[in-house]
Write a protein that binds this DNA or RNA. Sequence first.
DNA 1: TCCATATATAGGAATATTCGAATATACTTA
DNA 2: TAAGTATATTCGAATATTCCTATATATGGA
Lengths: 113, 113
Amino acid sequence: MPDSLRQVKAEIFQALGHSTRIAILQELRGRELTVNGFVERLGLEQANLSQHLAVLRARQVVVTRRAGNQVFYSVRDSLILEMLDLMRRYVVRQVDEAVARVEETERAEKGER
Amino acid sequence: MPDSLRQVKAEIFQALGHSTRIAILQELRGRELTVNGFVERLGLEQANLSQHLAVLRARQVVVTRRAGNQVFYSVRDSLILEMLDLMRRYVVRQVDEAVARVEETERAEKGER
DNA sequence: TCCATATATAGGAATATTCGAATATACTTA
DNA sequence: TAAGTATATTCGAATATTCCTATATATGGA
């Protein structure tokens, strides 16, 4: 694989690598939202949200549609949301395994006593 | 969703957000590799690779096994590789759509002439 | 045109990431 | 124990990211 392609992938992973931007994308499941919509739902500053939206726009993860005064954001390709789904599965699995390891350790320690 | 969970996800996305670390994970498809193995295959400096491997280790994306002198790295959960697969599909799709848009534009311009 | 509303951007400080060079640590073998 | 190989860590400079504050831009209505 050429490094330029990896670079493109890395930039999109980076775009997903911030909790606020993950929150933004989760809000965009199945709908579009204005900047003010994000402000209300996420309780963050308008400027800050605009900045994070700019990051997602730069990587073309989201697209915009202007309607009069407001700008509606939406996810360009829902494959991005599948990425978040996969990440959820991944994190859940790691946690489950960590719990299982703890329980296994406790069982072993009980047996030793 | 609590922000702490999003934070965990974001940290893993960040771990994937560098072309060298993507290259490392691709090399680990279906096998384990030593640090020197990465040096040979990727042609990067040993110290640099160790640093990137440390990032992946910190997020528990990879795990290590020491055998004598060497340290073997492997992917902890192959769901991570599915993430890379999904990202490949995503990038390919974006490129295809971009090409289609260009062709559509050319067709329209030809018609106008 | 003037004002209000919605959104974007610029500037600057704090923090984080990345890389190369140098050095430290771990293990093996003589 | 000394030397050699493999890997990890530290340091410092360069660059990037993030956030806040202030300001700019775009649009619609009076």
